[in-house]
Design a protein around this nucleic acid. Structure first.
Length: 576
DNA sequence: GCCGTTTTCGGCCCGACTGTTTTCAGTCG
């Protein structure tokens, strides 16, 4: 799949052209094409083979030709031409906050700066400050930018940030008289990683609200404190911005600060062609303000239904809205149970009973206990006897506790030879079987997973790519083959909601959905306090345009139990 | 370089803030 590499080439060209001072609109055209190609769920090579490159939005004659050339020859002349005389280390300097393309090219041209070392040097010896249009403050800015760059390199994980933001919002609600308050930005879109945190409020006394905000106990350092904007660093080193807007602009501001940028640009473009104008204060016709108190007003005045934040990535949601084809997304309240939880039988720390009681408190109808299997020694995998014992205990608790059904399950290891960690006779005793790779990440992972899916007792493949957001690359599976097999065998794919996994991710889920594959969400929780993470999984599902029917966590218990047996029944029919 | 219910040429999202400037360019989100 060449989508990624082609997308990166255009992004690179955009960066270099920006540095060279090319026409801004041309640069944006490359950026847009890059982003859209990155978001494609289809292999660009397939699209190319069908002669349909030009049907990709943002791909016109010129870019189509370049893609065609690259896919034919493995080369793109224009790319080489544009980038050959500019090094990576130079272009990377544009990432420094305060250092844009104009400043960089000035610094490069006048002082011969080629990398970070050079830049630091001309700051130290005062040559930078002597350039035209560069003053003391600008130098100071860049200097701080360099320091910040090294700190803020990494984006924050959604699952780390969400609880903190909600805590702060609750605190602010108690301490201030804000009429409305909500998180915005990529957090509200439930993106798996967050750049910076934006919270939006409506209220009259902005200065006072900001004052309260900057004096919360979580605050370590105040960066900005004004009438409409406050900015702080928490003890955990996370930057949070709070903005206060007038009540009548809350919807417009929420829409604006939620983004994404690409989604907003498209909306504004639409507004323009209808003689309207959108900004963070409202939607206008000439001088007349037509709305902006609620987000819905912005959308409805453009002839659109309100679009859920999770969809706002310019991945076709605006077009779908126009056609009346917006999906009916699964809702956070639709979840009736968590289908991947570890107990203290293996490496979890809560007892099955604790889990059942907590799940019932959460309003669930069922939970699946899926501990590790015997060969996963490092995680206390269960021997056959222990598993049988666990099944008995689950039966006993089910009889004793009302209002919740515990499903006896297991996260069965797919061993290095591709066989499963328990014989079928054991698997047959379980209500739900999740198969997973935990060892031998480099050994024929795709083939092993395919073999596992062929087993009629395997309902679900856990964390199918194995990636960890904060680090590990993943197993290097051939996902297309996995998806094909999952569709063929009616095997579900897991959306593992553990905050560092979120695997499958949104784009891959959407791809799978198009093949008719269904999903299950499991938190992979190892303690009852981690059960809340199911929301992260639902966020992924919503970002993947998934509806209730696609997700078995929304099925009433009896339908779920039937569904989980379907694969065995089908297999039985085939054998007859 | 893309694109078209005002356009096949002439547009291309919008505003705030900052700093270096005598009216605005650069950067950011």
């Amino acid at each position: 799949m060449k989508n990624q590499v082609i997308s990166e080439m255009f992004e690179r060209m955009a960066d270099v052209l920006e540095f060279k001072g090319e026409n801004v609109f041309k640069i944006n055209a490359y950026r847009k094409a890059s982003r859209i190609i990155q978001n494609l769920t289809e292999d660009i090579e397939n699209i190319w083979k069908m002669g349909r490159l030009r049907e990709i939005p943002g791909v016109g004659e010129g870019i189509a030709k370049k893609i065609d050339e690259y896919l034919h020859t493995g080369k793109m002349k224009k790319y080489d031409e544009v980038t050959h005389d500019v090094s990576d280390s130079l272009i990377e300097l544009m990432n420094i906050p305060g250092m844009g393309s104009k400043t960089l090219s000035l610094v490069h041209k006048e002082l011969g700066v080629k990398n970070l070392e050079d830049l630091k040097m001309v700051i130290e010896d005062g040559r930078l400050a002597r350039l035209p249009k560069i003053g003391e403050k600008k130098v100071e800015n860049i200097k701080r930018g360099i320091e910040r760059l090294s700190v803020m390199r990494e984006r924050l994980l959604l699952g780390r940030v969400l609880p903190l933001v909600e805590w702060i919002i609750e605190d602010l609600k108690k301490k201030t008289k804000v009429s409305q308050i909500a998180p915005a930005g990529s957090l509200r879109r439930m993106k798996e990683t967050i750049g910076d945190i934006d919270i939006l409020t409506a209220g009259k006394d902005g200065r006072r609200i900001i004052e309260q905000f900057t004096h919360l106990p979580q605050v370590k350092e105040i960066l900005v404190s004004g009438e409409t904007k406050g900015s702080i660093i928490t003890h955990g080193g996370i930057q949070i911005d709070l903005r206060v807007v007038p009540e009548e602009s809350f919807g417009a501001a929420l829409q604006y600060f939620t983004g994404s940028k690409a989604h907003n640009i498209k909306l504004r473009d639409m507004a323009k062609s209808r003689g309207l104008k959108i900004n963070e204060y409202g939607i206008f016709k000439g001088e007349v303000r037509l709305g902006g108190q609620a987000e819905e007003e912005i959308y409805s005045l453009l002839g659109l239904p309100w679009i859920p934040p999770e969809l706002r990535e310019d991945r076709g949601e605006i077009e779908a809205s126009l056609e009346g084809n917006l999906p009916e997304l699964v809702d956070y309240q639709d979840i009736l149970g968590d289908l991947h939880i570890h107990s203290n039988y293996s490496d979890g720390t809560s007892s099955i009973e604790e889990i059942a009681i907590k799940a019932r408190e959460l309003g669930y109808k069922f939970v699946a206990i899926c501990d590790h299997s015997q060969s996963v020694k490092y995680a206390g995998g269960l021997s056959e006897d222990q598993l049988l014992h666990q099944i008995e205990e689950i039966k006993e608790i089910n009889e004793r506790i009302d209002g919740i059904k515990i499903l006896a399950g297991n996260e069965v290891d797919i061993k290095q030879d591709g066989t499963l960690d328990y014989p079928d006779s054991i698997l047959a005793k379980l209500d739900i079987v999740i198969a997973a790779i935990h060892q031998g990440f480099r050994k024929q992972v795709t083939e092993r997973m395919i073999k596992a899916m062929e087993n009629p007792y395997v309902n679900i493949i856990a964390h199918p790519t194995g990636r960890l957001i904060s680090g590990r690359e993943g197993y290097g599976v051939n996902l297309d083959l996995i998806l094909e097999k999952a569709a063929e065998t009616n095997t579900l794919l897991e959306i593992n909601a553990y905050y560092d996994r979120l695997d499958l991710n949104d784009i891959n889920c959407r791809k799978a959905k198009k093949l008719g594959i269904r999903f299950s969400i499991g938190t992979d929780a190892h303690h009852v306090d981690q059960l809340w993470m199911i929301r992260l999984g639902v966020g992924v599902a919503r970002r993947a345009w998934i509806n209730k029917l696609d997700l078995i966590n929304t099925y009433p218990l009896n339908e779920l139990e039937d569904f989980l047996k379907m694969k065995i029944w089908n297999n039985y029919r085939l054998m007859k």
